[in-house]
Computed example of a mutant assay.
Amino acid sequence: MTARVTRASAVKAKAEETVEQRRLEEAQRLGKLYGALLPDVLLLRSRDNDVRKEGGRLLFNGRAIEPAELQAKAARERRLLGKPEPDRGRRVARTASGHKVGDSVSLKAKRSAAARCPCRR
C-alpha cells in the first residue's frame, strides 16, 4: 500500500516541521541565555514563577537575585515535589460536623436510644 500525498498532508507535515524547528531554536536560545541554570529556570517556571534575565540581571518574580539563590529556590521546589512518604495514609477531608466532604446526611430526626432498645416489647 502506498500513502497518497495530498496538498493538505504536505502542508501539515511542513507546519509540524517548522513548529519542531522553532521549538529547537527556542531551546538553544534559552540554553545560551541561562547556561547551567536552565534546568532550574524551567522547573521554577513550571511551578508558576516568573524567571527572566533582564539587563544582565536575573529576576525572580520581579526581584533581582543571585544565581545561587535561584539554585536554592529550585532545590527547595524539587524537595517539595518529592514523593509523599509511604507510611502516611491518605486522609479523607471531613467537615466541622465530622462528616466526609461530599456525603449527604439525612435531615430527619433520629430515634432516641430508648426507642431503639430491643428489650422493650
Rank of each mutant, 00 (worst) to 15 (best):
A74F: 02
G82W: 01
E54L: 11
D48M: 12
E20G: 03
E16M: 08
G31A: 13
S112I: 03
H99R: 15
N49M: 07
V51W: 04
A15S: 11
K83G: 04
T95W: 06
K110D: 12
E77W: 03
Q21G: 03
V105Y: 09
L70R: 05
V101S: 14
L24T: 05
G82C: 02
I65K: 09
K108F: 12
A109Q: 12
N61P: 00
L38E: 15
R121S: 10
T18L: 13
Q21M: 07
G31L: 08
C117Q: 14
A114E: 15
L24W: 05
E25G: 03
K12G: 06
V105T: 05
S112C: 06
P86K: 14
E77Y: 02
R76N: 06
A75L: 07
Q28Y: 01
L24V: 02
P84A: 14
A36V: 02
A15V: 05
C117D: 15
E25K: 08
K14M: 09
Q21L: 08
S104K: 15
L44I: 01
S46A: 10
K73E: 10
C119Y: 11
E17R: 12
R94Q: 12
V101N: 12
A8N: 04
A10S: 09
Q21T: 04
K108R: 15
F60E: 09
A8W: 02
G82E: 14
R47C: 06
A93E: 15
D40A: 11
R4E: 14
V51N: 05
A114L: 10
R121N: 11
F60D: 07
A113D: 14
A15F: 08
L30V: 00
V19Y: 10
